[in-house]
Amino acid sequence: MRVEDFDLFSTLVKQRSGLVLTKDKAYLLESRLMPVARKWQMKGLDELAQAMRGRRDEAMARDITEAMTTNESSFFRDQKPFDLFRQLVLPSLTEARAAKRSLRVWSAACSSGQEAYSLAMLLAEEGPKLAGWKFDIVGTDISAEMVERARAGLYTQFEVQRGLPITLLVKHFKQSGDKWQLSPQLRQMASFREFNLLGDLSGLGQFDVVFCRNVLIYFDQPTKARVLDQIARLMPADGVLFLGGAETVLGITDRFKPMDGQRGLYVINKPASAAAGLKKAAG
């Protein structure tokens, strides 16, 4: 691939999704974009680059961006965050919201919906304890195709075997041809929207819990800081943020701080400005 074509594609993808593609990812770009080129009846990436330089087609730009973003997901991915949610976050937040009896949870960059639906199943398992509660699980993803798949709640045999205990499959899914579909009751607990994390997040409303896992790793530092900052604005003082195993807020923002001894769990750093002042004073 020509250097100027790589630059064109990587700039486009960065602008639209925040995803940073370094030169060593050229092979990835080539293998992911060839199908896009074929879809648009082009011979190769140089032709695709040519087209993007000319009259920029929005649908084509979207295809290129979506092809480069990662849609890896599985039910109860990493397990631990879901254990923490059930054992720690849910008891404290349900106590704090006892009068309102409602909780809003955001699955940011939700891919095909497994994280959102894992939470729905987890809440359903809590049973009568949570009777009368209203849970609003919102999944968002930059990819229209992923949002559509998430809404359908339809998964391959391979997907339902990754992370999903067999008892939950039997309880909540129905076989549909060679796929498995989540029950309408559980699907109802989550809604999905196409949404770009780089955009203005304020329209999404307030969230008590945010899952934003394995997303920030693809962004550069300023983008990480901006996204975390915006997420903090959507959360009440006792809100909780889950990040992926390889992600942190340390050195990026002081809007959040790690919850003591709980990996991957972050809370709002309430006196954000005061804490920063203290650090300065101490230094």
Binding site: Q157, P165, I166, T167, L169, V170, K174
Partner: peptide, 20 residues
Amino acid sequence: ENDLAHIQEALSAGANEYIM
């Protein structure tokens, strides 16, 4: 065997998990 009936039969016979 990858249908619900077989999975349920296995679970009620005492299987702990099921891989298709």
